[in-house]
């Protein structure tokens, strides 16, 4: 996977305005509350993961120590501490989804993309991750890509989505 080491870690003016608005939501002296929302923005902006440089940048904006950012970022499963593919596919594997065939979905994706759970395809396009219940149990099996839910999956549906995403070079869209 290619990581642009020289890329400047800086929010655009527009993003910075959003971040400042979030920071103002909390009472005086409680700006640390903005940490998780701002990490989400940073992860979406800087290639879908949180490098130490990105976390240091977030610390400087909120005015807290870098270590406070590291300890929070590493606690939550949605923050990627390593680079991921352009398109991160998260398949739910918990009870209701398992009952409805999630294991078949995972195996199918593994075979098709020639990667195992947790790996990224050689071209850096896809990362596959199995995750726990996403609150979509009534429409199982399901997967999430960025902010989008794909529900009532069948192997055919998965096939056509993957084919389409490969062609268009899909990026996970976070909102």
């Amino acid at each position: 996977m290619q990581i642009d080491q020289k890329r400047e870690i800086r929010f655009s003016d527009e993003t910075m305005a959003t971040v400042q608005k979030i920071i103002k939501r909390y009472p005086e002296g409680r700006q640390k509350s903005a940490l998780i929302p701002v990490l989400h923005i940073a992860q979406a902006e800087f290639d879908g993961w949180l490098s130490p440089a990105v976390m240091d940048y977030v610390a400087s904006i909120i005015g807290i120590q870098s270590i406070e950012v590291y300890e929070v970022a590493s606690f939550y499963s949605m923050f990627n501490m390593k680079p991921v593919g352009k398109c991160l596919i998260e398949v739910c594997r918990t009870s209701s989804c398992w009952l409805m065939g999630a294991e078949d979905v995972v195996k199918h994706i593994e075979n098709k993309l020639k990667i195992k759970d947790g790996e990224t395809s050689a071209d850096g396009q896809f990362t596959l991750k199995t995750v726990e219940c996403l609150g979509s149990c009534g429409t199982a099996p399901m997967m999430q890509v960025g902010a989008d839910y794909y529900e009532n999956l069948t192997l055919e549906k998965v096939d056509s989505l993957l084919d389409q995403w490969k062609v268009e070079g899909k990026r996970s869209r976070y909102c």
Binding site: R30, K32, S33, A34, L35, I36, L39, H40, I62, I64, E68, V72, F75, Y76, S77, M78, F79, V131, E132
Partner: peptide, 19 residues
């Protein structure tokens, strides 16, 4: 939040809300 079942427990939720 950012992916943590435990943050549904009310005091964990408050911790999380405090960043």
């Amino acid at each position: 939040g950012a992916g943590a079942y435990i943050c549904g427990e009310e005091t964990a939720l408050l911790e999380s809300l405090e960043g």
